[in-house]
Design a protein around this nucleic acid. Sequence first.
DNA 1: AATCTAGCGTGAAATTCGTAACAATGTTAT
DNA 2: ATAACATTGTTACGAATTTCACGCTAGATT
Lengths: 205, 205
Amino acid sequence: MPSSIPDIVISRLPIYLRALERLSQEGHEVTSSHELGKRLGISSAQIRKDLSHFGGFGKQGTGYKIAFLREQLRQVLKVEREWEVALVGAGDLGSAVARYKGFAERGFHIACVFDSSPEKVGRSIDKFSIQSIDQLPSIIQERGIRIAMIAVPAEHAQEVANTLVGAGVKAILNYAPINLSVPDDVHVQYIDPVLHLQRMTYYLT
Amino acid sequence: MPSSIPDIVISRLPIYLRALERLSQEGHEVTSSHELGKRLGISSAQIRKDLSHFGGFGKQGTGYKIAFLREQLRQVLKVEREWEVALVGAGDLGSAVARYKGFAERGFHIACVFDSSPEKVGRSIDKFSIQSIDQLPSIIQERGIRIAMIAVPAEHAQEVANTLVGAGVKAILNYAPINLSVPDDVHVQYIDPVLHLQRMTYYLT
DNA sequence: AATCTAGCGTGAAATTCGTAACAATGTTAT
DNA sequence: ATAACATTGTTACGAATTTCACGCTAGATT
Ligand SMILES: NC(=O)c1ccc[n+]([C@@H]2O[C@H](COP(=O)([O-])OP(=O)(O)OC[C@H]3O[C@@H](n4cnc5c(N)ncnc54)[C@H](O)[C@@H]3O)[C@@H](O)[C@H]2O)c1
Ligand SMILES: NC(=O)c1ccc[n+]([C@@H]2O[C@H](COP(=O)([O-])OP(=O)(O)OC[C@H]3O[C@@H](n4cnc5c(N)ncnc54)[C@H](O)[C@@H]3O)[C@@H](O)[C@H]2O)c1
């Protein structure tokens, strides 16, 4: 049933959710597909159509009650609960990620941090004590963690991904600039800032 | 003329380029749309069609010469030259970005780093001396910088974007979790790791 | 040389996606 | 109470995108 909803629709929901949370912070209580669309540079029809996949969240003539719509989107995306996330790689980027409060604020708790370097294992980043990569499988399995972030050099990313998949992880956010091969039931998202920059230079004269 | 090529095609070229560079590192000299597609999880027809927008880069029966195709894509994307990039925000994330070697390695040189905090202005991150945000317009204009990265708290991202646009910046990579309003001729790309995580939880049972 | 094979480039077909339009319905003003 | 208005949910359509399928060429094989 949920498989009938296009991926591209799902991928826009977090954008809507983020905008709703901001509107809420700014003191708004209701909004409309037009207002949201204007903020996001998306047509109002698109927003209404996307939302209608999941039922009628708005009221004709009035718009959407922000608190309600936000709650509904949270449930659709399964982010009304909290998720535990494993972080692999405690280098420059990994440390910044571990210290970043934005994950926990939005429901993603970093539950453990792994590294392979004996220099780093045992040390701490904030409240996180860095653990050996050797312990990854047992810890992840015990805690039932299904989401992980990879912040190791590109050369080691695939091997880390294999370990994660073996331990039962089903969703990976990969910061290393390399494509990963994983089984079909494992989801991967990529963050590579250079790639984003390269997407813009084409348009510069 | 270039405007006739769909954005979605352009957005895939950097992915191809990255894969080609890796294949090259691994010692390959030629590849095929099938091999590339398998690595990237993209159909071979898609790759051939995307590339054909720019001319025939391959040889029938043989495939693509990696070094040649890479060079062609670099030119199409305008990344055969080097670009200077401004970084605004020298906090946790900004520092990690400034220290990251991957930008310069791939042709994006961080040319200057700005922050508004008197505590930070004058200090250094690696070789970068942090400059006051007040000097941003004059420095950016003098150096003719047209690309910037924003790594300030969400509340200040729009005001920073306005300043950047005023100074002539035409491409912004925004790390703050907020949508920016900019003129039509300014390009914006977003990086928000939480958003990527939220795109995966939907599919977890 | 003739044959075979791999694999590109491409037009046509199929599919997916976005937009326009509107009936239905709630809200506000008078 | 009625009219005027705003905005949703939905359908129908057109645009954009992807996939298919095949002609064609370069190189390998015999
Ligand atoms: N620093 C950034 O701003 C930034 C930005 C974008 C992408 N990246 C990417 O993120 C990755 C990490 O970057 P970084 O700057 O933090 O590098 P880094 O070298 O500072 O850190 C990498 C860490 O990974 C650990 N590691 C290596 N192999 C491992 C393994 N098999 N298992 C567990 N841990 C292992 C190392 O011990 C090290 O601590 C790289 O792929 C980089 O390209 C970094
Ligand atoms: N740390 C991470 O891993 C991470 C990851 C993703 C996104 N982000 C986002 O990146 C942004 C920065 O995060 P951070 O952790 O580095 O925050 P931070 O508070 O450590 O740093 C923010 C910096 O921006 C500076 N600043 C504030 N207003 C400014 C202005 N108007 N002009 C110039 N500089 C200004 C501050 O002085 C500070 O140095 C935030 O929006 C955050 O949500 C951070």
